[in-house]
Amino acid sequence: MLEHVELFFKSIFIDNMVFATFLGMCSYLAVSKKVATAVGLGAAVIFVLAVTVPLNWLLDQYLLRDGALAWLGPEYADYNLSFLSFILFIATIATMVQLVEIVVEKFSPALYNSLGIFLPLIAVNCAILGGSLFMQAREIATLGLAFNYGFSSGIGWFLAILAIAAIREKIRYSNVPPPLRGLGITFIITGLMAIGFMSFGGMLTGGDEAPATEPTTAQKSEKEKTTLEKEEQENAVSYNTLVKE
């Protein structure tokens, strides 16, 4: 239970799709001029992520990863089809989006009218494929966690686009330098919001305990870099002392 809660808050705030990994930026920038449309797209993203991530988790678990075909019999245990994951994931997403569109149109015309125009856009939203790829890269353990991951990442994306849309509605009344108007200022505001979201990084570690969060890939490489630099420094220092001696 605790890991569910942890994953939930971690995917919303710490690993926020927009602010930490820049996923779905294209539609984030293009559809954030009004709050109402932003809410529509955000809801569609939550919905599609919550459906496709668990589905791709099943695909990954029982078809793609190293030894995943073992359930077919021992002679299949050696296959590793993970090089096919891009094409299978994107095919799943594209078909799911079509299917969801048809089902929603049939059973809930009201929902279709509010989500409808955004659904086709979503097939090529990097947040959706990114969700599945990160799910694979972070080795999410169970189907329940995969659903949780998709759903809460969607909420994180929703919050981000809602926030920027609200800011952009207000910024229309401000005197922005002309060359920055529109796209430029949106980029800079997003950057500042991302800096703000970085402060959530300490949320789950809670002081005494060992850090429970796994750093994102970018941060990880930075960390490796800093440790490397430290080692280099130490080496240089010891070298210098040696030379002096």
Binding site: F22, L180, F187, G191
Partner: peptide, 15 residues
């Protein structure tokens, strides 16, 4: 090196 600066650099480029 932190990711938010990428956004700000692109913003400045646009400017």
């Amino acid at each position: 090196l932190l990711s938010p600066m990428a956004l700000i650099v692109v913003g400045l480029l646009i400017w």
